[in-house]
Design a binder for these strands. Structure first.
Lengths: 194, 194
DNA sequence: GTCTATAGGGTGATAGAC
DNA sequence: GTCTATCACCCTATAGAC
């Protein structure tokens, strides 16, 4: 079972480096120092590896985010915490995150619907915090969904340029993103049409 | 030559829908109603199609952006114009943009270096406008590169969710993004450490 | 310009020996 | 648990007939 996890991690590295479709089961076997027959003792299929990589990032991210949203704190504070948690995952698990943000369309059937459900829940949690901030007059937001996507885009796109970049501190980057975003949606800011 | 362009466009659609590596030359032939032999009368290789898709988006984008940066206008205005031009490309040429933002790592050799050079130039043009805004005291920016990437990420990530979404107006979306971003980097905003 | 046939080499997955 | 051999199929690209 430990061996299986090693194989999932090394697959994430290969998929992130060369793409899911372009990576052969033979390369995974080579990296694991296992012939193909032996490899299939540990895995069910190539796609099952893809599914496990997704879960390995998405499940802890959802857990942490649910906890943060449930906190008795201002919307501003909770949004900053979500930002830190998300960026920490993106930066510290670059390979897994690359795969889950880049290759999710290669999932099929039940694995695909499960993953879509989790992503939707994550987006809804962010929208909930933005909504709460409007209620409490912390934020002024015209279009909730597009604003949520602007927040998510600024964060998620990080996976594209962080690869191979020299060390970036997730807390510092989170502060930079949130300082921009929170000033941009602050009640009384120039964007509110007053 | 017209036929060739049709094949490039239909390839963009297939690559965006199913991924570059997962799309076979046979599927492209089927979509063009051409046997594989005849298809190769029009194209040099599968990768040449990928290269042409990239150029079809990147070249006009760079042209327009160079022109905007050269305008005698405030940094704020020029940044809003770049945002509109970029989002118009992303929304009106969804398939081509998907391919160029998602599959550029499948380019090899000279095609790859050429494309990287163009992307770098585009990023530098944005950084130039941000710099100009700092000079003119329109903007307050700590880390120029990370701030440029925050801007780019918010915009580029749009390609991920725009696919299949109902019609979105690029001008409206640009205003939403820029209202947030410009308030976030405005001189005298909460993020500047005053 | 378009076709069929084929080269030369991959693919994911399984069977069965050890 | 690990191996080799193999199945059935797919791939990009080219040759040469029409």
């Amino acid at each position: 079972m430990v061996r299986r996890n090693e194989i999932v991690d090394l697959s994430a590295r290969l998929f992130a480096a060369n793409g899911y479709a372009a990576t052969g089961i033979r390369e995974i076997g080579d990296a694991a120092e296992l012939a193909r027959g032996a490899l299939y003792y540990y895995i069910d299929s190539k796609e099952s590896l893809l599914g496990e990589i997704h879960n390995r990032v998405m499940d802890p991210l959802l857990d942490q985010t649910r906890n943060i949203v449930g906190l008795k704190a201002s919307a501003t504070t909770r949004l900053r915490l979500i930002s830190e948690v998300l960026l920490t995952q993106i930066i510290e698990h670059q390979d897994h995150v690359w795969v889950f943000l880049h290759e999710y369309r290669s999932l099929t059937g039940e694995r695909r619907t499960t993953f879509k459900r989790k992503r939707d829940e994550f987006e809804n949690l962010i929208s909930d915090v933005l909504s709460a901030g409007v209620e409490s007059h912390e934020f002024q937001i015209d279009d909730l969904r597009l604003t949520m996507l602007a927040f998510l885009g600024m964060h998620n796109y990080t996976y594209q340029w962080i690869h191979g970049a020299s060390a970036v501190d997730p807390v510092k980057l989170s502060k930079l993103y949130c300082d921009i975003f929170l000033a941009g949606i602050a009640a009384g800011s120039p964007g509110d049409g007053v």
